[in-house]
Simulated assay, not measured.
Amino acid sequence: MGATRPVTDDTFEAEVLQSDKPVLVDFWAPWCGPCRQVAPILEELAGEHDAIEVVKVNTDENPRTAAAYGITSIPTLNVYSGGQLVKSIIGARPKPALVRELGEYLG
């Protein structure tokens, strides 16, 4: 089972857009309180579901990727499948709500 891992401007295409399975991208920043609330939930999801990859993009350190995908509020959780954005969740949610919203991608 996996854990969340960081992705950067330089690795986003290879690790997210070219992935063989759906990828949940957590757009976050260290100063964002709600981002810190959702982080442990995402770690749990990564450990419990191997049908989806869970990665994190620090928007302060990777502004090109955040700008390219129109990230204006964080946390934003985007699911990419086959190189396309297929789901976007803006704001922190409790784990049951995330599981419900992401159900079809969790396997």
Rank of each mutant, 00 (worst) to 15 (best):
T65C: 07
R36H: 02
C32Y: 01
F12K: 01
R64Y: 12
C32W: 02
P63M: 12
D10A: 15
V99S: 08
D9S: 12
P63S: 10
T8Y: 06
I74H: 07
P30G: 13
A67D: 11
Q37C: 00
Q37G: 00
T11Q: 03
S81F: 01
D20G: 15
A39L: 06
Q18R: 15
P34S: 11
K87H: 12
T65H: 10
R36Y: 04
T8H: 04
S81D: 13
L102R: 09
A51V: 04
S73G: 14
Q18K: 15
H49Y: 14
Q37Y: 09
G2V: 01
T59S: 11
A14Q: 07
N58M: 03
C32R: 01
D60W: 07
E15K: 06
E44G: 07
G91F: 03
S19E: 12
V38E: 09
V79L: 05
Q37S: 12
C32G: 03
I89C: 12
Y69L: 15
D10C: 03
Q84C: 08
E104F: 03
I52D: 05
N78D: 12
D10H: 11
K95T: 03
T11M: 04
L17C: 11
E53P: 00
V55I: 07
A67F: 02
Q18N: 15
L98Y: 08
T4K: 13
V23G: 07
D10K: 14
V86C: 08
V38Y: 01
L77V: 06
C35S: 11
K21Y: 08
P22A: 08
V99D: 13
D50T: 06
S81N: 10
Y80G: 01
V38D: 05
E48P: 05
P30K: 05
S88E: 15
D50L: 01
G107A: 15
G47T: 08
R93V: 04
G2Q: 13
A97R: 15
G91N: 03
L45D: 13
V86A: 04
A29S: 01
V7S: 09
K56C: 12
G82H: 06
P22G: 10
W31G: 00
P96Y: 03
I90S: 13
L42I: 07
D10M: 09
E53R: 04
I71K: 09
V7L: 06
N62E: 13
